[in-house]
Amino acid sequence: MPQMNMVQAINDALRVAMKKDDRIVVLGEDVGKVGGVFRVTAGLYDEFGDDRVIDTPLSEGGIVGAAIGMALYGMVPVPEIQFADFIWPAYDQIVSELAKYRYRSGGEYPCKMVIRTPVGGGIRGGHYHSQHPEAHFIHVAGLKVVCPSNPYDAKGMLLAALADPDPVLYFEPKRIYRAAKGDVPEGEYTVPLESASVAREGRDVTVIAYGAMLYEALDAAERAAQEGVDCEVIDLRTLWPVDIRAIEASVEKTGRLVVVHEAPRTCGFGAELVSLVVERVFFHLQAPPRRVTGFDTPFPYTLEMEYLPLSHRILPALLETARA
């Protein structure tokens, strides 16, 4: 089985899907001749031609809007937003048009597409090349949001998203684009959406993480183990609709919960996850749930490693929760 990094796995998924289904069209800024700023679409332009890999102007609202029009025809567009930080000019199209087409047309117009976009900090990107904006989209009914953490899931989840009838935002954690490597099967396979995975089994504390922060959570869990605290780390994979059963099952076992995410704390996705757990398995809880997150600031440049919820910030939360 070939070894791939995230970039190669996503590229491979696009190639496999585009070979099989000519309704799939990739469009975005520099996705064609350049092959994408992170090289995720490299080679596709030469292989599939300029009418299936479309270079666009810097026009995010136009990119997503044009993708919606194509989706209304039953095509399967895969718009790329070069950085998630650039998605806001398209937010109107995503929120007002894409997310609501099916609902407001009484089911007449499904709007199937996969919007790919790199997310997250840790690459010295500063304010506008680092954000992790899942909460803004999870809050909008009508969208699915996914964020794989390894090459196997990245390929399998992208193929699942391309087969899914709903609009999917596919977040690519760019800090681990090349750092995360692993075996990736050739050809076609899917990792079902809406299924979390247990990245590390444990008895004492449930830790929920996703994307690049999964590795920080795993590192913290190893260090906690040296202090006698056995953590279970859940890789959420699909953020919404969330695999709540997997979370419940883990919290029922551990009675303790820590949620980790890069995005700012207030009204972040962690708030929703904690609420869900409190509502559903409150009587299993033995300690207050905790969040380890980014700060309520714009994404910082110089202090980004202080901002991110890295292992050294997760560890005390695990130990305190275990001992509370």
Binding site: D51, G61, G65, A66, G69, M70, L72, Q93, E97
Partner: peptide
């Protein structure tokens, strides 16, 4: 949404062309 339909129209025409 004022203006919201215009990019969608572009997409419909893009699909027609495609």
């Amino acid at each position: 949404i004022v203006g919201g339909g215009l990019p969608v129209a572009v997409g419909l025409a893009l699909a027609d062309t495609h």
